[in-house]
Write a protein that binds this DNA or RNA. Structure first.
Lengths: 104, 104
DNA sequence: TCGTCATTTTGCAATATAACAAAATGTTAA
DNA sequence: TTAACATTTTGTTATATTGCAAAATGACGA
């Protein structure tokens, strides 16, 4: 395995890891519909402020969401719109393992 | 969040987690091309037998690969063919965050 | 400026993951 | 049956992740 290939896999793994927690998946899907500020997510998720903030930073680090400070609040929104089709692809794909999906 | 919804997210998170390690991604992509038995993967990956076996079991548990004992060897192959398009979708989608991908 | 609000960062404890070596299992060949 | 091989399981250690509370930061309004 070349260094470039290793880097590619580590990068990709980071993205999968960011989506590998129920709370973060919930956040990503929630932001699919509309942007939200942190305290809204905290309320709806029922987790501690600091916990939610951590999850948000993992998603942001992976390039999946982006933030936007306006006034006192920080609004988060989905950056990687592909998340919607990736999730659908996986849900359908694991349910029907041998059926090809997407553009192939 | 309902119990059913929680279950769905945990299930999905498990699949993402299975793909969130470079070695496991490498294995999944390798099996995309053809089935392989464990010692081939061990050789190519340069990891310990037990380590590779663990990774394989994580992928199998998540429904991404399946195995097939033939003679002395255990052959692994990709079960969730969707992995190919999911990876492509993510790679393209994170590179071009705001472009929709897939079938939308 | 000072206090308050929204959020992030830090410190910490509990749990999960990753890797290896060694032991255990199961299969084939002699 | 026994030896050798392929793989999995177990035990262990190091590291990473998760979640909370408390402290720190930064912006706004009085």
């Amino acid at each position: 395995m070349t260094g470039v290939e290793k880097q590619r896999l580590e990068y990709l793994a980071q993205i999968f890891k960011a989506l590998s927690h129920p709370a973060r998946l919930w956040i990503a899907e929630s932001l699919l519909k509309q942007e939200r500020c942190v305290h809204e997510l905290v309320e709806e998720l029922g987790l501690n402020f600091s916990t939610v903030s951590q999850h948000l930073s993992v998603l942001k680090q992976a390039g999946i969401i982006e933030d936007d400070k306006r006034g006192k609040n920080v609004y988060y929104r989905l950056k990687a719109v592909c998340v919607r089709s990736v999730i659908r692809c996986l849900e359908e794909g694991i349910a029907n393992p041998h059926r090809k999906s997407g553009k192939e």
